[in-house]
Design a protein around this nucleic acid. Structure first.
Lengths: 294, 294
DNA sequence: GCGCTTGTCTGACTATGGTCAGATAACCGT
DNA sequence: ACGGTTATCTGACCATAGTCAGACAAGCGC
């Protein structure tokens, strides 16, 4: 892995160089590129690129002076400034895009089509795994925007898969999945939720896992089992010794994962009309090392 | 590929950061690291890192002042300065190493062992292909150091595989594989020869491919066929319409490659005691586009 | 309306990375 | 010994990247 880093960055350092040669220093070019991907408020850009507010202000000024971006106050909060590309800025952005593409094309040019496919496949695999490794799992309030977004995706998928109707469900969660008797976790990558799940208390020593979901594009990266381990640790942290969950027979991957993780089928323990399968697993207690932190 | 670059460098930019936090600016740390891998002359470092001579001089001075490197004049040419780490520099270098390792370890920590294997395999594959794509093929004099080194590897391998004795062979090459009647190509990566091959004239319109070799660690990256195409183009450039070559039955991969490239077996056309198989292929002439440049 | 917070901007400052034009000394061929 | 070349060093110079403290205006809770 270290070896790869070395040889790759050495050869692809060229990638960064491609930001040069358009008459902008690297910092300004990165900013321009970021704005081009998605116009945003100055503050959003600051967090996305990790810049100092003063520094960003100056960079923006520079881009504005060159006529590449337009900065206007946000009508809803006039402290904020919204930034977008001008027509000239968009042209410059496309120039950056073309240069980067050109670089990539030149690099793979000596390879045969077969080899290019192999390279693309290898990079895609590495990309998925690296992204998966850097997914961040946070405990959040079930009413928070991040949680609502994740659960929204979850409900949408249930609806697609077996016609689930989400009416009123979210409100119950807000209480049940909050401390002190519940927990809600959201896993996110680049600020987008990619998985979520919660624990609620349904009896003395009994926790129920709820709203467990993994984004479709992220299956097969071990995210589900990682989240499951974290939820079990959270349940143990709430003092539970048994974890239960219900699910629908349509969710075959999820069921396979539960069984692989040591869950055994049990008889129906609630009256959830959408549930067809019920599982249970004894918890080891909080002594066990949970997940490794990330 | 672009996508990978973006997400990877974003997350692994951390790698570069690991050069920080040891009290050295990035440039100095890179230099220190490079020296630690292999002590060298100032000039060699300059080309390896692509630095300005003045800049390098100052960086070296700085490292010397901090007692991390020792700079001594080369006894054979006192204009040159040889650079090596001091004991303190070696310790600092190991600190860099440990930090980088630690970074890598932290990154893959959330992954399961199975996934780590997948990541390592994917990166190794990508590494090989990217290295292969950036291999540089140059025409050199068969007497040049690069050529001698490559042919040395070649003879060593022949010796291992079927007891070949190289006595006197190199001297013949020096004339036969030089212009105007011959050509010699060396493919190198990071300054190390990884493949070579030459063309000599053995009759009117007939070129013979000689000394064709690909480094063991580079098989399966398409380097052989790329070099072969270049050699055929070179032979066509010399005015030949037929390419011939002899080889030993022990070199099974090479034989497979020749056949795949359109070579057909012909009867023995010389008295080379080491050769057991003989091949020939008509050349299309120099009109055809050779290799794509690299 | 008042105080606090948030979002942005400005000025002042620093170190780094990098370039360029000589200066100097050692080597090389003749 | 001489002129040219090579390897390095030095001084002068510049833009970039980044930090920090404070100014200022707009929102927010009460």
């Amino acid at each position: 892995m270290r070896r790869f880093n070395r040889s790759y960055t050495q050869r692809i350092g060229a990638l960064e160089d491609s930001f040069l040669g358009v008459g902008l220093p690297l910092g300004a070019a990165r900013l321009l590129y970021e704005i081009g991907i998605a116009p945003a408020s100055a503050q959003a850009l600051r967090t996305r690129l990790g810049l100092d507010s003063g520094y960003l202000s100056r960079l923006l000024r520079r881009l504005e002076d060159e006529g590449l971006v337009a900065v206007v106050p946000d009508p809803r909060d006039r402290r904020r400034r919204r930034v977008d590309l001008t027509a000239a800025g968009r042209r410059r952005w496309e120039q950056l895009e073309r240069r980067s593409d050109e670089r990539a094309r030149l690099l793979v040019e000596p390879l045969s089509p077969r080899q290019r496919e192999r390279l693309v496949a290898a990079l895609a695999e590495a990309d998925l795994l690296v992204r998966a490794a850097t997914v961040q799992i946070d405990q959040v309030n079930p009413g928070s925007p991040a949680a609502r977004k994740a659960v929204g995706y979850y409900f949408a998928e249930l609806n697609r898969r077996f016609g689930f109707d989400a009416a009123g469900e979210a409100d119950k969660d807000a209480v049940a999945l909050s401390p002190p008797t519940g927990v809600f976790l959201v896993a996110s990558s680049d600020g987008e939720p990619v998985a979520c799940g919660g624990v609620q208390t349904i009896g003395p020593g009994i926790g129920e896992l709820k709203r467990m979901w993994v984004h479709g594009g992220w299956r097969g990266a071990g995210l589900g089992s990682r989240l499951l381990r974290r939820l079990e640790a959270a349940a143990a942290g709430l003092g539970h010794t048994i974890a239960r969950l219900d699910t629908n027979e349509a969710l075959t991957e999820a069921i396979a994962m539960y069984q692989h993780a040591g869950y055994r089928r049990v008889p129906r323990y609630n009256d959830n009309p959408w549930a067809t399968h019920f599982f249970e697993k004894p918890l080891d207690g909080p002594a066990e090392r949970p997940d490794g932190g990330a």
